[in-house]
Design a protein around this nucleic acid. Structure first.
Lengths: 154, 154
DNA sequence: AGGTATTGTTCAGTGCACCGATGAATTCGA
DNA sequence: TCGAATTCATCGGTGCACTGAACAATACCT
């Protein structure tokens, strides 16, 4: 008698959207490499030699998750981990040739998949879609990591 | 040199959106009951006595996942599983009093959380947000389960 | 009625995602 | 310079999410 309509719950919609994407990714892009794995490869193409924590920050993965993702990519020979000689706490990450080739191949397929995924929306709507989602996600992240106050707090 | 901008990838945005929601849910709604668990409770408030597979269909969870979610809710005493006397394959699900109380409490908190989550958007934008996401998710699901053809195929 | 197909559930395996605690290396401060 | 705080990575635990395979109960069909 007091049930709610889940279609008006952003969290439920977000989950469904991600599931839909997962499905399409699996059929149109790759069954081996997942979307978060591709995000890591992409980050290391842009900035080779990053350390693990920073990569996690770039793609939005927590320290434990990024460690697992990187370990999988390492096992598949797509990247190398080397201790930073300057700072023995971190590992520096770099794609192998195989990793570069994989990234290139998947970039093409991902572009095709994005077209199919967004096909129900007009070009304007697609921009709106990006904008609205980004604003909501950014704001919620902001609640987590409050911006630096202008004056330091004691 | 060939890196892509992930901010224009709907899959990446979908993941970030869900993470942001997860965070807010944990702080504003519950650390015990997750959003998918609430969706199951909500479905059983609306339609008591559903079987497990149908609940999964309503909330968008596959057979394995729904089994785990339901087993957790059962362990916490929020619902009961009974063999259907009419069809020995299925279990009929029904909330306990504790389950009903939990649903009621979380409904209030969830409404508050949704307001905070969507606060960056105007009322019109919120409707657009729902509409755009729903259209994309529905279309992708449609690719998976092609609609019944008007004439049966041999 | 008896064999085949379908359906509901479970199980094993893989991967993402979070937190708290731990340990090692570095940095900061008195 | 030496002890305390910070930072990077790992480990253990929980939960979501999917697939393919197995199993039992039911339904269908001749």
């Amino acid at each position: 008698m007091a049930a709610v309509d889940l279609a008006t719950h952003p969290g439920h919609l977000a989950r469904r959207l991600q599931q839909a994407h997962y499905l399409l990714w699996n059929t149109m892009v790759s069954e081996e490499i997942t979307s978060p794995q591709f995000a890591v490869l992409n980050t290391l193409v842009a900035e080779p030699g990053l350390d693990q924590r920073t990569v996690g920050e770039r793609v939005g993965l927590d320290r434990s998750t990024i460690a697992e993702v990187i370990s999988r990519l390492g096992r598949r020979g797509l990247l190398d981990k080397v201790r930073d000689p300057q700072d023995g706490r971190r590992f520096l990450l770099r794609l192998t040739d195989e990793g570069l080739r994989t990234h290139k191949k998947l970039t093409v397929r991902t572009a095709r998949m994005n077209q199919v995924f967004l096909a129900p929306l007009s070009a304007e709507e697609q921009n709106l879609f990006f904008d609205l989602i980004r604003r909501v996600a950014d704001a919620a992240e902001g609640l987590r990591n409050p911006a630096e106050p202008l004056v330091a707090q004691p």
